[in-house]
């Protein structure tokens, strides 16, 4: 267990370091920030002065080392535009993303896992057909379109929810449903196939031979053994969602990490882009590590390897 933890930590550190490096290089390929910050008619001298202030005229290796050194102590600099510290910008946007990710995942799990289990138990039955159809439909609809569709029906047509924005719980409902529809297909189908793999095992028959009630056989024996791949997928989805669901956040003007990243990229706000990626990478690493531990708690065989 401790070795697993150590290995995951080292791997995690490498992941974060590579993410920092790749973003550092890529943002510098995206162009000169001064051409956006300063008006078009600014002279070359004025641009040069600004570059000097932003530290952009130093050599790339020097910039890189300064950047890494500051990042190591959690300092990602200040935004080029409003001089707010990157960390505080990220922290302002993070709760919105977390709330959205949490709500949509909870919603998806609430429907996908029970339906996936029932689909497997009554294979080829009504629920199974229903899950298959919903999964294929859900997987074929891009989330920005689902978002627009939901706005059209529930916000514009029925006037039940606000069309966009962040703030009240009512604002949360449509984007959460959109993302849940995005996560549902893979989660339901994986649950179903994972259960189907466990159902014919002899220990399931042995549980019935012990006279265990069927609900207990499914709920304890089958579900627990079939949970490992589902947990791994969930970890991946959490990782994706804390990185911000860019399309959904944009459609609903949701003030989350994804939208922050997109706006900052468009404005060539290097420190913000780098900071967002760094925080998301760290978050991703922690979620993966938590999943590795959770999987070992569920499956003791992996624990002793």
């Amino acid at each position: 267990m401790i070795r697993v933890f150590l290995r995951q930590s080292v791997l995690g550190l490498l992941v974060v370091l590579s993410a920092l490096t790749v973003t550092f290089v890529l943002v510098r390929f995206s162009g000169d920030p001064t051409s956006i910050i300063l008006p078009q008619e600014a002279t070359e001298e004025q641009r040069e002065v600004l570059r000097q202030q932003l530290g952009l005229n130093e050599s790339l290796p020097a910039q890189y080392l300064t950047y890494l050194g500051n990042a190591a102590v959690g300092n990602f600099g200040r935004s080029y535009f409003d001089s707010e510290a990157v960390t505080s910008i990220v922290i302002r946007h993070l709760p919105n993303t977390l709330v959205l990710a949490g709500a949509s995942l909870a919603l998806a799990c609430l429907f996908a896992i029970p339906l996936g289990v029932l689909a497997a138990v009554w294979r080829d039955g009504v629920i199974d057909r229903f899950v298959q159809v919903v999964a294929v439909t859900g997987a074929s609809m891009p989330s920005f379109w689902v978002g627009l569709l939901l706005i059209q029906i529930f916000a514009v047509g029925l006037n039940l929810f606000p069309t966009y924005g962040t703030g009240s719980p009512a604002h949360l409902i449509l984007p959460a449903i959109t993302l849940a529809i995005y996560v549902f297909p893979s989660l339901a189908r994986l649950t179903r196939s994972s259960m189907l793999e466990v159902l014919p095992q002899s220990y399931v028959m042995a549980a019935r031979a012990k006279g265990m009630p069927e609900a207990r056989v499914i709920g304890r024996t089958v579900l627990r053994n079939g949970m490992v791949p589902v947990l791994a997928l969930l970890a991946l989805e959490i990782g994706n969602l804390i990185g911000g669901a860019v399309l959904t956040e944009t459609v609903f003007a949701w003030e989350g990490i994804g939208r922050l990243a997109i706006t900052s990229i468009q404005r060539r706000d290097f420190p913000v882009v780098q900071g967002v990626v760094a925080y998301v990478a760290v978050g991703f690493v922690f979620v993966t590590m938590a999943a590795e531990i959770a999987i070992r708690l569920v499956n003791p065989k992996l624990r002793h390897k």
Binding site: Y203, M205, A206, A207, A209, K210, G211, T221, N225, P300
Partner: peptide, 24 residues
């Protein structure tokens, strides 16, 4: 009939490894 299993009739099967739940 389900209550009978285990109470009055028990089964031991040939493949003991696969008849035990690996997670418990």
């Amino acid at each position: 009939r389900r209550r009978l299993n285990g109470q009055r009739v028990s089964l031991i099967s040939q493949d003991a490894l696969s008849a035990l739940n690996p997670c418990t």
